[in-house]
Design a protein around this nucleic acid. Structure first.
Lengths: 357, 357
DNA sequence: GCCTGGCACTCGGTCCGCGTGAGTGCCAGT
DNA sequence: ACTGGCACTCACGCGGACCGAGTGCCAGGC
């Protein structure tokens, strides 16, 4: 009888909602299936176990609860969690201490990579879940400068600095031989010419320039364009960075007690590509995102939930930051935590941007 | 009765040696404890189980075998493996195909980081164990060039290129404000002045120069020295790089079947510091190194063995490459594999060095 | 003196049966 | 509309029995 369509708030009478809420809260706390008896004794309802059983049967019909086996209590389904998060959850505000901790930690590091890694670490510690921080490729971001350094006779390291202070390094093997002087000139030229453009724009302009160049036969120009295109063109090596911190904490959760799921979990956290996929799709949405179990391929397989939010300057989103944990997690605490941290990160990055430019 | 001192080859009569050898081979193959009956039936000995039991009892007295519990067969101890490796093992030569695979893979990548990561990956796949590649800090290596790039108003990225083609990047926050022109001059000056020196030497010379500078009050020189010292001084951020590849494969080994050891193993591979410690100490030895169980703190706790060998140019060792697996691994195959790969890596690096300079 | 077959013993692993307790659905009564 | 009662189900834990692999020891044979 489980209904397929999204459940609205008013589809459930207030009592049923309270019962669902209590079951989820208790289950989050204990990890055990919740039975009618335990629920009756908790004091929140002046109802006998039998009545609660009826309510719970209704909730099960709605697909919000399920029984792991016939004679066990109920645990929430993915839909149950979803309903809880949308309609029932009262997220606790972050304590002053927590906020201070975040501000301090985020403020401490100066280099962007460090800030991000710190953030993941911090998140993992504060949530006791796995913290993830994701920074996608920089293709769509504007650059502040672009420098080329001689690293071997025909090997050049290209250092690109984004307007938001992000630094990306890439090594290019080229067919030309460059001298230090040439590279300095080229660096200066390209930086002046292209500062403020996105890598995408730069690539297109460079390609257009190839045509002009054919007419001029200017060797220096030719080298410049060739190097510029090399640097921007094959953008794949601008690997997205993904920090996964505190995998240890998740291993102690009772849901990952047995060897099989422990192994699966381990492998899942290693396979960063999948994770990157998910976070990339989340990048389009603005607010706090919560993915529960079956709501994405990745979380489905592993019974994970992901709580994440975009961070970055107002002008352009930079990446995602969030936590991964078992579906049974304290969303009421995780939500404000991730929210606050992502905002703190964003603020930090904006400051950096103003300050550095 | 277990003897403490190192066991020599002639301490065991030939038959006992053969028995030990066979037990270890069979145990490596099956993972199970080996009993006298199975051993008798294998055909290699024309002996009854009872006689073999006597031999095995002797081997146990020597501390080479042990029983997991009273009524089980025997498995090798750390000492048993050690004796096996030192005196009994016949390492198979690497097949032509394997050698070709290695040559191809090592030859493919151009950037040193990539080569190393590839190597770890390859090693993991070919051995079905965890592959590790370790590159320590560059303090003791000579540099080819040193460039400084403007990344923020008071933030400079320093790009150091070693004579062996290794590129290291480091971002410095400085109290001075630099212009592009200044940085170009400084880069050129430092590169000309210090090419060929090790970071350690450079630091010492720069510190000596501070005194001269006080007399001159040359602002440019002051800036140069300050930047140079910053780049070299706090060398900790030249983090040693450690690639751990293919952790998945080790999880399928039967010795890590239960949840507890699975968890321990997982955590062990995450804690890279410990691993770095070990590999660092191994860096002094020249040939192939095999660490078994209790022979180091790390391997003891986790029942690991490590097979590793130094790689790098003849002039200076660069790092360690090897595999980590359960003590029960095919040493006869792993040893030549690691050996060959490390030599291939070294050759590659030497070529790079000649070619690039 | 070395090898062997025999024998008693030990111990881990598996299977079975039982009791227990938590939980359910349904129904009749208030 | 709520409640108590009742029969039923099922996972889980426990103890006992059994089996098989392996051992140590001993006495006998080449």
């Amino acid at each position: 009888m489980a209904q397929k369509h999204e459940l609205h708030e008013h589809d459930l009478d207030p009592r049923a909602r309270e019962v669902l809420r209590e079951i989820i809260l208790q289950h989050i706390d204990s990890g055990e299936p919740i039975g009618s008896r335990t629920l009756s004794k908790c004091g929140k309802f002046q109802l006998s176990p039998a009545s609660l059983r009826n309510v719970m049967a209704d909730l099960e019909d709605h697909g919000l609860l399920q029984q792991p086996h016939t004679s066990a209590g109920r645990i929430p389904t993915d839909r149950g969690y979803r309903f809880f998060i949308n309609h029932l959850m009262k997220s606790r505000a972050l304590s002053l201490r927590d906020r201070e901790t975040i501000e301090k930690e985020v403020g401490a590091a100066t280099e962007i990579d460090q800030v991000l890694q710190h953030a993941g670490n911090l998140l993992s510690k504060m949530s006791d879940q796995v913290g993830v921080v994701f920074m996608p490729t920089l293709l769509q971001f504007a650059i502040r400068s672009m420098d080329f350094i001689l690293v071997g006779e025909t090997r050049i390291q290209c250092v690109i600095v984004g307007v938001n202070g992000v630094v990306v390094n890439k090594i290019i093997d080229t067919r030309f031989v460059f001298t230090r002087d040439e590279l300095e000139k080229i660096s200066r030229y390209i930086t002046i010419e292209f500062a403020g453009s996105t890598l995408d724009m730069i690539r297109r302009r460079l390609i257009r320039m190839t045509e002009q160049e054919r007419a001029l036969h200017d060797q220096m120009l030719q080298k410049t364009i060739s190097l510029g295109i090399e640097a921007v063109n094959d953008v794949a090596p601008f690997e997205h960075e993904l920090y996964v911190e505190g995998a240890a904490s998740i291993l102690n959760k009772p849901e990952f007690a047995d060897a099989a799921s422990l192994r699966r979990t381990f492998l899942a956290l290693q396979e960063k590509e999948k994770l990157v996929d998910i976070l990339e799709t989340c990048l389009d949405e603005e607010g706090l995102q919560i993915l529960i179990g079956s709501e994405s391929d990745f979380t489905q397989v592993h019974n994970f939930s992901i709580v994440a939010r975009r961070y970055g300057s107002t002008s352009a989103p930079l990446g995602m930051v969030g936590i991964i944990g078992p579906m049974r997690m304290e969303y009421a605490r995780m939500a404000p935590l991730v929210d606050y941290l992502s905002r703190a990160l964003s603020r930090k990055i904006e400051e950096e941007e103003e300050h550095g430019s």
